[in-house]
Amino acid sequence: MARYIDLYWLFLIQRLKTLMEYRISFILGAASTISMQAASIAAVWVVMQKVPSLSGWSYNEVLMVYGFVTLTKSINHMFADNLWTLGRVYIRTGGFDRFLVRPIDPLFHLLADRFCQDGVGNFIVGLALVIKTSVELGIEWTFLKVLMFVVAVISGGFIFIALNLITAVSAFWVVDSVPVTRLIFDNHLFAQYPLTIYPRAISILLTWVIPYGFASFYPASYLLGREVGNVAWGAPFIAAFLMFIGYRFWQFGLRYYSGTGS
């Protein structure tokens, strides 16, 4: 484990050195995603100036949900972005074979190969939103709430990573796994708003099938002292379960993998 942490550090420093060669690209990349978030937030702001309640959630409460999903998504974006490019960049070109002959776990190698700076913008926006809304709503940061925040962000990040991993494994069969991943990944957009605005079927889907609800709605409910809040403590178990499935499926896919012959 310690060896992998050291290794990750080395990979990261190497990557940052490369990024710093193109400083403007780095900053623009990190900042660009902010404009997308700003557009959505501005829209919610405009509407909620007119109507102060979204099925019982105030503007700041809605923003907290939004902040959580942005924050947890950014973890995946920064540390596991290569799951998107597995097929296109590594398998298609044959570059993936490089990972297989090295004395470290190929999945670790894939993820460590590229820290993605574009997630930094979302991380900052998400964190700022949760802090801003918790101050405006007068939330008292007790020990349990701080613990929940940390647990939720890490678990939420892993839920994103695990679902992307499970779908990315399809690259071993279809090469370009991006459409498969998008199919599942895009469901996180539901979790930008309180799940109570949707019909029951959708909130069940987002809780038990594609559990992005644990990356936003449930932890926010907990911090806000809402009824369903305690469900949020399930997040680490769900994340661990999904990661387990994801890793096993990855190993299964690896056995199938025979290269593209390029």
Partner: peptide, 22 residues
């Protein structure tokens, strides 16, 4: 000479200012 970041930035502005969301 940087395209991706600029493109995403403009996309965000477009989405809001075109009136597609509100």
């Amino acid at each position: 000479t940087e395209i991706w970041g600029l493109g995403v930035l403009i996309e965000g502005i477009t989405i809001f200012f075109s009136g597609s969301l509100v």
